[in-house]
């Protein structure tokens, strides 16, 4: 593990060209992967991929936000900013996993849900809300991993889970430091300052009860050694998935609700 980097330094790493994406990880972590497409209502959103495969031989459902590795890929996947149909595809596959008693593994990597006319018209708010509610009571284990950017409600829509892990240099935040600075201080150029006070790092997530684990990245960041970081992610999943699958589902659901239920700070 590297020396502790500042939130800002890590943010630069997350945006480094060549940082591995969900498409890089899938072939190295899972076998027999089949991608499944579409939400059965409107279309197929390339910003979220989903499918089935095996983890150590056990069938699992895999859902993740897709970042492009170059401009062409990014145009195709809309820079990992999903529309409502992306979240509805995710929900369809999660429900399918529940039916076939497969655990769900979600990979979070998005600047946020897409902010546009079509997204509003097709109910992006409703789509995210529905996922939050339905994932909370999905009767199968869910593990989510923040790979790079965990931006806002668009990230959380794949983040209602039993355990959340976050890569060492990844971030999870209510909105981007840039957006934060521009809303709160009307000055987007203060994004570095925002990143330092927003509490967005992996350790912050553990401290605040949002994440249960931090997955170590290779020296210099995930892009320096794809095999090593994939191995670290797989090791985490290989331990967590069987552990969650062994639990009584009603106990698991109670723990899932409690995990979110207790986040917050107030004086009664």
């Amino acid at each position: 593990m590297d020396e502790k980097k500042t939130a800002w330094e890590r943010l630069q790493l997350v945006h480094t060209k060549g940082r591995p994406t969900v498409s890089d990880y899938i072939p190295l972590i899972f076998t027999d992967f089949y991608e499944l497409h579409g939400d059965r209502h409107y279309g197929d959103d390339m910003a979220i991929l989903g499918g089935i495969g095996r983890l150590d031989g056990r069938p699992v459902t895999i859902i993740g936000q897709v970042k492009g590795r170059d401009l062409n890929e990014n145009k195709e996947c809309n820079f990992a900013m999903p529309h409502p149909e992306g979240y509805r595809k995710a929900l369809r596959l999660a429900k399918q996993a529940e039916k076939f008693h497969r655990p769900v593994i979600c990979f979070i990597d998005t600047p946020g849900a897409f902010c546009g006319v079509a997204a509003e018209e097709r109910g992006i708010g409703e789509a995210i809300a529905k996922n939050l509610a339905e994932f909370m009571t999905l009767r199968t284990p869910i593990i989510s991993i923040v790979l790079g950017e965990g931006g806002s409600g668009g990230a959380l829509a794949l983040g209602v889970c039993d355990d959340l892990a976050i890569l060492e240099n990844a971030q999870y935040s209510v909105l981007s430091p840039r957006g934060f600075a521009s809303i709160l201080w009307k000055d987007a150029s203060r994004e570095q300052e925002a990143s330092e006070i927003m509490r967005i790092t992996a350790e912050d997530m553990v401290t605040l009860g949002v994440a249960e684990a931090v997955i170590e990245e290779p020296l210099g960041g995930a892009h320096n050694d794809l095999d090593k970081i994939s191995e670290n992610i797989k090791e985490y999943l290989s331990q967590k998935i069987p552990e969650k699958c062994e639990k009584d589902i009603d106990v698991l659901l109670k723990e899932r609700y409690t995990k979110f239920r207790k986040i917050g700070e107030f004086l009664d």
Partner: peptide, 11 residues
Amino acid sequence: EGIVSLMQMAK
């Protein structure tokens, strides 16, 4: 409230 605010959506 940063990320804590976001988690209220799930709660």
